[in-house]
């Protein structure tokens, strides 16, 4: 099926089998392999991308569902020469080891900051009617959809804190 998705600002038209997931369309068809396949079932978060600015698991979405959507992958966030502040913070804080979950963590972190800015609640939010107190516990809960088996969790918290300050 003909499907046009704007990926990292560029309109890309694909003729895909309806079975192709958004993740496989990015990785195998567009050769944007920064989005990772860790579980293929929404259980790890390594495939996290931003669709119209919102973070989702690209493994549990079909490419054809995204005709007309704006998709941002890790490749659209910054390059090795011009790192985005979030990428720079992950590097500086050593917020990864093997690096396989990292693109998903970074996309998720950016999506998460947008959700906090929108005052979306989480399981850690005590007062649902007040402005979010963006504590470390809030940050941790909101990043719990991204597993890091190397367990760089404390460094990820530090990196997001640091970048959030810079991006604010």
């Amino acid at each position: 099926m003909k499907t046009t998705i704007t990926v990292n600002g560029e309109a890309r038209t694909l003729d895909v089998d309806p079975r192709v997931t958004l993740l496989d369309a990015l990785r195998e068809h567009l050769r944007l392999t920064g989005s990772k396949k860790g579980c293929d079932h929404g259980q790890c978060g390594a495939c996290t991308v931003l669709v119209n600015g919102v973070r989702i698991n690209s493994c549990l979405s079909l490419a054809v569902m995204h005709d007309g959507d704006q998709v941002t992958t890790i490749e659209g966030i910054g390059t090795a020469e011009t790192l985005h502040p979030m990428q720079r913070a992950f590097l500086t804080e050593d917020a990864f080891q093997c690096g396989y979950c990292t693109p998903g963590q970074i996309c998720s972190a950016l999506g998460m900051l947008a959700e906090v800015a929108e005052n979306w609640p989480s399981q850690e939010t005590a007062d649902l009617t007040a402005k979010i107190a963006f504590t470390d516990d809030e940050l941790r809960e909101r990043m719990s959809g991204n597993i890091c088996r190397c367990s760089a969790y404390p460094q990820i918290v530090a990196a997001i804190r640091s970048a959030a300050g810079e991006l604010a």
Binding site: R27, R31, L32, T33, G34, S35, K36, K37, T73, I74, E75, I77, G78, T79, A80, L83, Q87, R88, F90, L91, T92, D94, F96, G99, Y100, T102, P103, I106
Partner: peptide, 21 residues
């Protein structure tokens, strides 16, 4: 010091085995 290969990993440009061209 920061990881040598870190800039590739944080930009999703370090090719893992299934991603090699």
């Amino acid at each position: 010091v920061d990881r040598y290969e870190g800039p590739l990993k944080v930009t999703g440009t370090a090719p893992y085995a299934y991603e090699v061209e």
